[in-house]
Design a protein around this nucleic acid. Sequence first.
DNA 1: TATCAATATACCTTGACAGGAATATTCCAT
DNA 2: ATGGAATATTCCTGTCAAGGTATATTGATA
Lengths: 110, 110
Amino acid sequence: MGGKLTTLSALAEPNRLQIVELLRNGPLTVGEIANELGLRQPQASKHLRVLSDSGLVEVHPDANRRIYRLRAEPLVELDTWMESFRRMWEERFDRLDDYLRVLQEKDKKE
Amino acid sequence: MGGKLTTLSALAEPNRLQIVELLRNGPLTVGEIANELGLRQPQASKHLRVLSDSGLVEVHPDANRRIYRLRAEPLVELDTWMESFRRMWEERFDRLDDYLRVLQEKDKKE
DNA sequence: TATCAATATACCTTGACAGGAATATTCCAT
DNA sequence: ATGGAATATTCCTGTCAAGGTATATTGATA
């Protein structure tokens, strides 16, 4: 569990990404997930294992079944990592903005 | 080029993630990147190829050299994807908020 | 307790991918 | 034209991860 890289590799697999997206609508059991995505039960379990190890998901046993729920932490971590990029693009826009303002000044003087 | 999955798998490799982080500080040549990260030139080129194919990076030939620059689009796409999750947590906090307010009301009445 | 449903695990096979080393390519300078 | 620097590409090899199938595990119920 832990780290951008772990989160990224966990998400970089089609079925797992779908599982995560599916769990946005609320917790589900293994069977439901497998059903919904057309996966065989063992593969569903395996993917859920990976997601669980990476902290993206947590399990709550309910008798026979196991209910999987999405966890915020890793996604929040990823999100804050991306903030640095958001700031980058914004700064670029700002600079572009400045540049355009300079051009307008020129226009007035000409 | 294209799609969350492509972006995620491109980033889900230690060296490539480092390359992307390195390029936040501005464009660099292959040699500089390889040097900075202690990679051999061919591996650097290969990773840059993957990043380029995924659209995370763009190349500008400069005589002998090739200058690689970070591209916003894929990261912005990832970011907007994560927005749905951001909203999720916020809603949860709101619900928690509501719940706490209910508890306070109870306190007053008891 | 025997059985059944839900889930996890083990084992096998296959395909993708990353590193290493050599080589091809492109551009500049002499 | 020749040689040398920077970069891309190729080929090989080993590793790892995903799917398939069978089996173990756990809990409920008759």
